[in-house]
Design a protein around this nucleic acid. Structure first.
Lengths: 344, 344
DNA sequence: CCTCCTCGTGGAATCGATTACACGACCGCG
DNA sequence: CGCGGTCGTGTAATCGATTCCACGAGGAGG
C-alpha cells in the first residue's frame, strides 16, 4: 500500500509538503498542492490512520460498551450513537458485554489499549478497578442509561420515575391491586431505580409491595420467564407484572402462554423500554418508552465535548408511558387521558 | 500513560528486553523477566496497540459492514461474528450501512484507513469501485449473507431454495393459490434469489407469478407496508404475501391491521428470516430460519483463515421452514410433517 | 544596495512499539 | 589453554505519519 513517501517521490516534493497538503496547512504553493493531489490520485493513496494516531495521539474513535446488543433498546442506542459520532467525525467501536462483568472488562481493556479518544459505558455492574482507574486517570468517559454512583463521570440517562407513577396510576385505574415487578440486577442503577420508583408509586396509592412480588431478574428473557412462573405458583398470584426491561417482558409473555393462560385476562403485563415489536405482539404491550435516539446523541455530544476540552454536561430526559392492551383496557378512541400525556 | 521506555527504566533494562518479556520471547533471563513484570505491575503499563500495529502491520481487528443493525437478523449475525472473532483473538469494528451504498462506502473506506486485517461484508449493492479495488488488491475479504457475483471473494451464506419450496408447498397444501412476494432490492443477491426461488417453486406447482404480485421492497418495514397496501388495492388481491425479510413482514402486518383486516383470515403472511419476536406476534409468523449464528462463525473462520495464510472456504448452509399460524393452519399436535423437517 | 520579513520548502526528530544485529560472558570440548 | 557456540542483553533501524526548525528566494523598506 502506498505510503506518504511514495506520494512525495511521485510528486517530486518532500513528505513534509505532502503532509501539509493533506492537512491543508496554509503555506503550500498552488503548484505543489496540485502536484501532490495528482500523485495521491495516481497512486490511490490513503493516509494510514494507525501511523497518524501514533503521532497525534488521537484516534478519532469512541468506544461504546453496552450490556446486550440483542436487546433492541441497546441496538437502537448503538445506532444513534454511531450516527451522531459520524456526524462529528468520529468512528465507534462497540463492545457487547452481554451483562457479564468479565466481558465488560475485556472490552474496556481492549478499547483503552487501542487508545480510543473516549469511552461511552452502560455499566453492567459497579465497575471494575480498571474502569474506575481509567476514569480517575482522566480518560474521557460518559455513562449512558446506567451509571455508577460516586464516580465523577457525566451521566446521560432518562428518568422513568414519573412514567412509572403514570403506569401505576393506569393499573390502579383499571382495578388492579396486586402488582408485582420483575426487577433488574441490583448491581445496576436502572435495576434498582425502577424497583424504587415502582415501590414509591404503589406506596402513594396505599398499595403494598410484598417481597414475594419482587422477582429478581437479570434483564434477560429467560429470567423473566422463570420469575413469572414463580409468581404464577404463588398461593395468591399478582394481577399484573411489570418487567423492568423488554426482554424480561418477552419471557413473561412466554411463561403465561406456556401455561395456557392469556394476557391480560389471567395476568396483565407492562414493560420498561418500548420497542417496535410491542405493537405487534399478542396483545400489544403497554410500555414505558425512553427517548433512546436522543439519549445516544446527547451522550456522544457530552463525550465529544469532554474530549475536545469543553465542559461536558450530564443530561436527564423524561420517559413516557405508552398505553396498549396488555393491561386490560382496550385502547378506546377516547380523548387523551392524563395518563397518556404522561411525564415531562 | 506509561510507555515501554518507562517500564524499561523502572526495571533497569532496555526496551528490547521489555518487549521480549511481553511477547514471551524465549531468551530472557528469569531475573529480567521478574523485574519487568514487577515494573509493568507497578506502573499499570499496557502496551499501545496503535504503536504495535504500526510496526507489525497487524491490527488484530476485523471490519464488519452490515446492511442494517436494526434488523434483528443482522444484530444476531454481528453478535456471533464478534464472539467467534474474540475467541480467535480479534476485535470487530461494525459499520452499519443502513442499506445505503454511500454509507457502506464510507465504512469500507474508514475501515481500510484503519488497516483492519480483514473485512466481512454483506453488500448493499453491486459494490463500489473502492470495495472491488480492495478485494482485487488483496485485502482479505469474505462476503456474508449477500455477495457480489463475479468477484473472487469467499461467500458464507445460507441457501433458502429448498425452504422456499417447502414454504410454497405448505401454502399450496393450505389451499392458497394466489401468492405474492415482497421482494428485496434487485441490487442484492438475496433480493434476487428469494424471488427466483419463489417463482420456481410456484412454477413447479403450475402456479403463475404475475408481475402485479411482485412488489418491490427495500428490506425496510415501510416498504413492506407500502407494497402490501398495493396488493390489497388490487382488483384481485393475493391470498398470501411472502416477505423477503422480517422487517418487510412487520410492515405488511401493519398494513393489514391498519385496514382492520386480519392475518391470516384476510391475508396470510410468511417471511424470510426467523426472529424471536415472530413467536409473540399476533399471529405468530411462519418464517424461513437461517442458521444465523453458525453463518457468522463460519464467516469469521473463513476470513481468519485467509488472513493467516490458510485457504479460505466458501460455505453454504441450509435454511429451514418454521411453520406457525400466520398462513392459516393452526399448529396441530401432529406427527412432524415432511414440511417441518424441511431442507438440507 | 543592504537588511529584514515572509513564504515555501526540506531535513530530521518524534510517537511507542518490534526486531535484526552485535557484543560480551560463559560454557564445554579438544 | 584456546576456540566455537549458546545465551542474554543492548543499540539502533524501522513502521508512516506530523511538526519544529532552518534555510534560501524574493519583496519591501530604508
Amino acid at each position: 500500500m502506498a505510503s506518504i513517501k511514495d506520494v512525495a517521490a511521485e510528486a517530486g516534493v518532500s513528505v513534509a509538503t505532502v503532509s501539509r497538503v493533506l492537512n491543508d496547512h496554509p503555506s503550500v504553493s498552488e503548484d505543489a498542492r496540485r502536484r501532490v493531489m495528482a500523485a495521491v490520485a495516481a497512486l490511490g493513496y490513503r493516509p494510514n490512520a494507525v501511523a497518524r494516531s501514533l503521532r497525534t495521539d488521537q484516534t478519532h474513535t469512541l468506544g461504546l460498551v453496552i450490556s446486550d446488543v440483542l436487546n433492541p433498546y441497546f441496538t437502537e442506542l448503538a445506532r444513534s450513537v454511531e450516527e451522531e459520532a459520524r456526524a462529528l467525525g468520529y468512528s465507534v467501536i462497540i463492545g457487547n458485554a452481554d451483562e457479564r462483568p468479565d466481558l465488560q472488562d475485556h472490552h474496556v481493556r481492549t478499547l483503552l489499549d487501542r487508545r480510543i479518544d473516549g469511552l461511552l459505558v452502560s455499566p453492567t455492574d459497579g465497575g471494575s478497578p480498571l474502569m474506575l482507574d481509567a476514569a480517575r486517570a482522566g480518560t474521557p468517559m460518559v455513562f449512558v442509561d446506567r451509571w455508577i454512583p460516586g464516580v465523577d463521570v457525566p451521566v446521560v440517562r432518562s428518568d422513568g420515575r414519573a412514567a412509572v407513577r403514570d403506569l401505576v396510576a393506569h393499573l390502579h385505574g383499571l382495578g388492579h391491586r396486586r402488582l408485582a415487578i420483575i426487577a433488574g440486577p441490583a448491581a445496576t442503577t436502572t435495576g434498582r431505580e425502577r424497583v424504587e420508583a415502582f415501590r414509591e408509586a404503589l406506596a402513594d396509592l396505599g398499595l403494598p409491595l410484598p417481597d414475594a412480588y419482587i422477582g429478581q431478574g437479570d434483564f434477560q428473557a429467560e429470567s423473566g420467564r422463570r420469575v413469572t412462573e414463580g409468581f404464577l405458583d404463588l398461593p395468591e398470584p399478582p394481577e399484573v407484572v411489570f418487567a423492568a426491561d423488554n426482554l424480561m417482558a418477552l419471557g413473561a409473555l412466554d411463561a403465561v402462554r406456556a401455561r395456557g393462560l392469556t394476557v391480560p385476562g389471567d395476568l396483565a403485563l407492562a414493560a420498561f423500554d418500548d420497542i417496535p415489536w410491542f405493537v405487534h405482539t399478542d396483545p400489544p404491550v403497554t410500555a414505558i418508552a425512553q427517548p433512546t435516539g436522543e439519549l445516544g446523541r446527547a451522550a456522544v455530544r457530552a463525550l465529544v465535548d469532554r474530549i475536545e476540552g469543553r465542559p461536558p454536561r450530564s443530561v436527564t430526559l423524561p420517559a413516557r408511558l405508552v398505553v396498549r392492551r396488555s393491561c386490560g383496557e382496550p385502547p378506546q378512541p377516547l380523548p387523551p387521558s392524563p395518563v397518556q400525556r404522561s411525564t415531562s
